[in-house]
Simulated scan of single mutants.
Amino acid sequence: MFIRNCWYVAAWQEELTSQPLARTILAEPIVLYRTASGQVSALEDRCVHRSLPLSMGRVCGEHLVCAYHGLSYDHAGRCVHIPAQDVIPKNAQIRRYPVVEKDNVIWIWMGDSTRADETSVPDYPWHSDPGWAHKKSYRHIAAYYELIHDNLIDLSHVGWVHEKTIGGTPEAHSRAEVKVVRSEDQVSVRRWMRDSVPPPTYVKAVDFKGNIDRWMEIRFRPGLVSIYVGANEAGKGVDEDHYRNTFGARIFNGVTPETEHSTHYFWTAAHNFKVDQPAATEALFKEVYATFEEDKMVLESQHSRMRDLPGAPTIDLISDAGGNQARRLVKEKIEEELRHVPVPA
């Protein structure tokens, strides 16, 4: 099941043009597009006439036109023109989804539109902060979205799965000092690894000569997992004044469920070193891309085996504390929504 009353990443800003974009979100078919005036719209992806996907149509000015019989829709989902007749039925209406364009991201609200508070859209200023450079990507993952949450929140796997990139010493990750904090709407996990071996990605980025002190912060809220990692030479420590770290990287992880068995994964890798060197941005991106490809293989294999053996018992580890808090948060939000579902008369 899914939380519906929250903001999810629907697309990157540049994905939306006058060419309609089809995307399934929370098992609902959506069509996203940009009108001639630049307005972003998200509608139910079907024509009221015979349900042809509107994503097969085209944008004409401010309207989306069905490719079957030319019915035109405005940004609110109302049919405003039918070429074959002058009368437009009162029920010629499809669902409109609230959308917000912010920080190079298109956010969508899948729940009760009256509760869609635009001020609650997550801030991510590092997509435009001149002190940071970044590059973005998208992956489709054939796995349940909460498995992705687990993977991003519990970084103890890094030393085992990502040995060739961001890993370092596996034992250092497994024995990291960890602090988990839960609030009503988010989970924060902080990890410290002092005097540890620098991973290949860090060495390539800033040429560490010896051991390092590493610091990681993971912030989870439904729809977005933000990760900040920092490092200094061992002994200098890693404080919370992020800009003092020799190596600093921020990873944006937009986790948007597609179905119970698949997820849209939007991510960016930003860095605060060599920000005026595009080659450095590209090099970090390639390292993180390789890392996420390894994660994708793990996640899809997990999900496949869970489908093969439904109900098979599993255990929790100490490192699952943050991920388990995130699962509880998701469960509580879903249960709260179900309690407020109107009962049919």
Rank of each mutant, 00 (worst) to 15 (best):
I218R: 00
S301M: 12
H271F: 14
K164Y: 07
K331G: 05
P89A: 15
N151A: 13
S113H: 08
W126K: 00
V343C: 09
G111P: 02
W192T: 05
F2Q: 02
V178Y: 08
D154W: 06
L152E: 10
S137W: 08
A142K: 02
E146I: 00
F220W: 06
R190D: 14
D308V: 08
R58S: 08
D129Y: 07
E62A: 12
A143H: 04
H340V: 13
L32H: 05
A280I: 11
V180R: 06
E233F: 07
T35G: 07
V197G: 01
H261V: 04
G254C: 07
S262K: 03
A283N: 02
S113Y: 04
A76T: 13
D239P: 04
M306A: 12
E163A: 12
A92F: 14
N104E: 14
N91I: 15
R115C: 12
V65S: 08
I166N: 05
S128D: 08
A22V: 10
D86E: 13
Y228W: 13
Q302K: 06
M216D: 11
S120D: 14
N245T: 04
N91V: 14
D150I: 04
G223N: 08
V298T: 03
V330N: 04
T263E: 10
N5E: 14
V206I: 13
V80W: 09
D112V: 04
N5D: 15
D86C: 06
M193P: 01
V238N: 02
S196L: 01
A84E: 07
T314R: 13
I106Y: 10
I25E: 02
T246N: 04
V197Q: 10
I88L: 13
T114D: 14
S188Y: 04
L26H: 02
Q277V: 13
H162G: 10
T263F: 09
L21F: 15
R219H: 03
N5G: 11
L71S: 07
V105N: 07
D207L: 10
V121Y: 13
D150W: 03
S174P: 00
H264M: 05
P122D: 15
E300M: 09
S226H: 09
I3H: 01
V121C: 12
Q93T: 06
I251A: 12
R182K: 14
D123P: 02
A269S: 14
I82S: 05
G210F: 12
V229E: 11
S41I: 04
H140F: 11
V238A: 03
P278R: 09
I153D: 02
E28A: 09
D112L: 09
T169D: 15
R305P: 00
E177C: 05
D320A: 13
F247W: 02
I227K: 01
A279F: 05
H157S: 08
E177N: 08
E233S: 03
V181M: 12
L329M: 14
E233W: 10
Y243D: 11
I82G: 03
E335G: 10
R328C: 05
K274H: 09
P89M: 15
V206Q: 01
E217M: 03
R194Q: 10
H264N: 09
W109D: 06
V100M: 06
T17D: 15
R244A: 14
G237Q: 08
L43I: 07
T24E: 12
R221W: 15
S37W: 10
W160C: 09
